[in-house]
Every structure is written in structure tokens, then in C-alpha cells.
């Protein structure tokens, strides 16, 4: 009998064509108020935010603690991210861990790119490479979560226009 967790690897890519300039889309990741709108405040009432902080710079961090009150993932979800490389309006690369009730269940490298595809048009690519550690909803759950978040990002941009 062993308590060592199973470890697997996976990745996924999401793309969006967005009716805004790369600078406007990038600002949604860089500006703490805009980021909070789509990244923190877009979840349903079953999610409560215990704390959230964004220090957007190379070497900076993003941390959050979120409580889910119901369902199989109920408990405290904690995110710790480190920004590894930022090229304004072009690229954000960061690594992050997700933990539930104190147990890290994934470590990821996220690469986000912003490419102009015309006047006020941006092709956004979100690529996540994951190490999944022990029990986790894995790449399926993470992909589902990011589809929801990118929908919320587009909604935030429309509101700000």
C-alpha cells in the first residue's frame, strides 16, 4: 500500500477571435480591476472569494483562495501563480499550482499570446501544459473552467467598450 500520488501530464489550447485591440485584451490580464471582473467575479453564488491579489510584473504573483460550498469539489481552492515572462500586448507566460483543501493537485505552465488580426481584432491563444497530481478533475475540468473564464473576459471587454 502506498500513499504516493499518481502523476500524469496533459495539455490543451483555446483560441478566441476578439473584437478589440491586443492592447485592450492584454489590459484585461494586466489591470487588477479588469482582471478581477472576469477572473474572480464571474463565478456563480456557490463560489465565495476569501482573498485575491494580483502583482502583474515579471517575477510577480497572483494568489487567490476561493470557497466552493457544494458539489464534489466543495472546499477551499487555492491558486498560486508566478509570472515568468511578460511582453506587453504580446505574451504572458506564468506557472501556477492549484490546491484543494491544502493538497496541490496540479502544476501548470500557461502561455497566453495576443496577435493583431486587423483593426481592433485580436487572436488570443491560451495554451496550458499540466502536471496532474493525484485526484483531480484534470485537463477536462481545467479546459471547461477556462472556456467559462474566456467567455467572461469577452463580456468584460464588451462592458468596457
Amino acid at each position: 500500500m502506498t500513499s504516493e500520488p499518481n502523476i500524469t501530464h496533459d495539455s490543451f489550447t483555446l483560441t478566441r477571435e476578439i473584437a478589440a485591440s491586443p492592447a485592450q485584451v492584454f489590459a484585461c490580464w494586466a489591470d487588477p480591476m479588469l482582471k478581477r471582473r472576469w477572473f474572480v467575479e464571474s463565478d456563480g453564488p456557490e463560489w465565495q472569494t476569501a482573498d485575491y491579489a494580483l502583482d502583474f510584473r515579471t517575477g510577480g504573483t497572483e494568489t487567490g483562495r476561493f470557497e466552493l460550498s457544494e458539489g464534489p469539489g466543495a472546499g477551499e481552492h487555492r491558486q498560486i501563480a508566478h509570472f515568468l515572462d511578460i511582453a506587453d500586448d504580446h505574451r504572458i507566460v506564468y506557472a501556477y499550482t492549484m490546491a484543494i483543501n491544502g493538497r496541490i493537485h496540479s502544476a501548470s505552465l500557461a502561455t497566453v499570446t495576443f496577435a493583431s488580426t486587423g483593426s481592433n481584432r485580436t487572436h488570443l491563444t491560451f495554451h496550458e501544459q499540466m502536471t496532474v497530481i493525484g485526484d483531480s478533475d484534470g485537463v477536462k475540468g481545467r479546459r471547461h473552467g477556462w472556456i467559462h473564464l474566456l467567455n467572461a473576459l469577452e463580456h468584460t471587454l464588451k462592458e468596457a467598450a
Binding site: P5, I7, L84, T97, A107, T131, I133
Partner: peptide
């Protein structure tokens, strides 16, 4: 940058 050290089983770093 060390993200996880669970010796001697697994480690994750950037």
C-alpha cells in the same frame, strides 16, 4: 523555481 518537492517521489519546478 521550486513549486513542489515531495521527496523522494516527485518534484515540480520551472
Amino acid at each position: 523555481r521550486w513549486m513542489r518537492l515531495d521527496g523522494p517521489h516527485d518534484a515540480v519546478f520551472t
